[in-house]
Design a protein around this nucleic acid. Structure first.
Lengths: 198, 198, 198, 198
DNA sequence: GATGAATGAGAATTCATTCAT
DNA sequence: AATGAATGAATTCTCATTCAT
């Protein structure tokens, strides 16, 4: 019969395959691994399938569209992050900085940011999540530090931006083999945080 | 996702077409425009050709491989940057910050960083250039500011990293529609620079 | 266009699932609806399942192969037609014409004729049914009209062809948004029938 | 690089490959042949390529999208038809009927009508062409016959509908192996036309 | 009765690249 | 200096079908 995909507006998000399938989890793991080690551009159903020694169609069975797949990885990653951060009990500016400066987490986030330029679904999710996470981190900052020592016009949100900016830049550059100034940058951040110690 | 055949058998780097051809320049302009407005993933010989209303083969005539094309854009862009910065006479910390925080320049740089994950040639060039530019900026910083006010263990390279980190993060997030904390982050940077004013 | 695997290894026609299951009937209803509204090309086990919010495998449970499914719809539709026509008591040429010119019936028939090009099972069934229905309609025509008024060499079968031809063409063209000459064509048919009134 | 077809709204209709290429013509020929012999559902770039012993990509080189390909066949076919009809000098009702009752032409037209259900571009073209051709045939009818003999409310457009309806139905049914009543239907048409002879 | 998992085949496209002209 | 023709490999996605549960 003819089924030439005639009006191919995929509905997507019709999740087939139970949320708890082991295969589903394996796929997500592999996508995450690929994104970190080779960049989002390496995530294709073929490639993922080959790495896991399954068929590309099976990837599509669990994630009808590539957007579904990528979004699932993103959502799972922020879920995991939230879970870890709650478990960790962040009770000092130093432990907070460790949270910002998590290498694998930032590497993944950077890939998603690059992706976001072409994928609206991803972009929207990232914007939302970034907004929220900035909020909760600012709260933590307010609790753990004496922000009155910051210059005028500078609140916890701004500090959050600076911290994540440095953390991500370090991770991104390390990925490219660049390290010049990294230790010094960390020193600057640390003394900034020391200064804010209540 | 990626289906651009990442390598196969390229003769590469045999540059045909004089360096000064007007067509060559038009192609480079278009690639740069595409990278900034739609991301590096939109740069294909087909697409570039279509935008310029020329034939894809002509793109390959000037730039045998895609690596050649992208590298040419990168090299030209740092050349242009160097040229502008020399012309501008950076004589204050404020004018130096403006140099860091140039939106179009950063947008292009961010695309190249994303690209660097899959293109070794680009990665190497970026690493080299980043190292050098960090050096020359640190020199400028040393001249224009009183770095003795920085905490122990923090030199101009570290400051360079912080500045570029904040600048790039702001540009990247704006691209995604995120602005929370941006003004405050700029305030923090500015008061840091004020503090260093000799 | 067509990528539905037209044959491969089907066991076929081993009908599982009782003839009277409600689910079975729902599936047939949906297939008929899809054929009329979107064309036979939209009839896939996936699509049918999605519309009914059941699993594709369930469709295959009742109808092992797509041929089985389509054939079942066809057979049911002629059964239904026969039933209705008997109930309706066709006792005038006008009521007979209404039988020919039934829009939904013709729309379905047209889809099956298009299908018949690629599906031998369907083709054979259609040929058989068309032959028979033509026979029984000719009988009706003979009873209801004075065929001696037809020109030499023209019997009830030929008249049957003309009537179904006009009816189907009108329905087909309406589907495409064409109406030029339609009212006039109906007038021609009606005066032809008037002329044959005994 | 990633070029995962990110926003795949193809622009289409950017015709590459000169209008006069021999390969281009061969492709169109083959598509027409396939449509007539196996139905439009058999027209896939793969299949066409296999028949001609060329690569699927070459089909896409000349006709970027399947719509382009099908539309090109349709446009060429009506061009050819117009050309032939002009050359033939239709000067009697009998020669006009032969025009209506052209087997290969009708077989192709029927496939396009089936196609039109799913392809808007085709549907629009067919609607337009049908409207126009009906007009020019009605003109011919008016010239060649004494339409005052038609019943009230019946003009040349209606007659055109009846003629094409019968012609197409005969062709369609022959394709399915049905012939019952065909000769008689032709007799009916012929005596109708005889009746209108001026 | 029903379904989840998996597969293999095939569809439409797109792309980088080569080569002869 | 430019281009038309052609290819081979990749991409995303859809489908019919099977099978174990």
């Amino acid at each position: 019969m003819s089924n030439r995909q005639i009006s191919s507006k995929r509905k997507s998000s019709i999740r087939i395959g139970s949320e708890t399938s082991a295969t589903r989890a394996k796929i997500l793991d592999e996508v995450e691994r690929l994104m970190i080690s080779e960049g989002y551009a390496s995530v294709t159903s073929r490639r993922v399938a080959k790495e896991l020694d399954i068929k590309p169609s099976l990837v599509h069975y669990y994630f009808p569209t590539t957007d579904d797949l990528l979004l699932a990885v993103w959502l799972r990653s922020i879920e995991t992050q939230r879970f870890h951060e709650e478990a960790e009990a962040i009770d000092s500016l130093e432990s907070l900085w460790r949270t910002y400066y998590s290498k694998s987490r930032n590497a993944l986030a950077l890939e998603f940011m690059a992706l976001a330029n072409h994928r609206k679904v991803i972009r929207d999710q990232i914007a939302l999540h970034t907004h929220n996470i900035r909020g909760s981190r600012s709260e933590l900052l307010s609790k753990l530090s004496d922000l009155s020592k910051l210059p005028d016009g500078c609140g916890p949100d701004g500090l959050s931006v600076v911290l994540i900016a440095v953390a991500r830049t370090l991770v991104m550059e390390e990925g490219l083999g660049i390290t010049r100034g990294h230790d010094e940058a960390i020193s600057i951040v640390k003394s900034l945080l020391d200064m804010l110690e209540p």
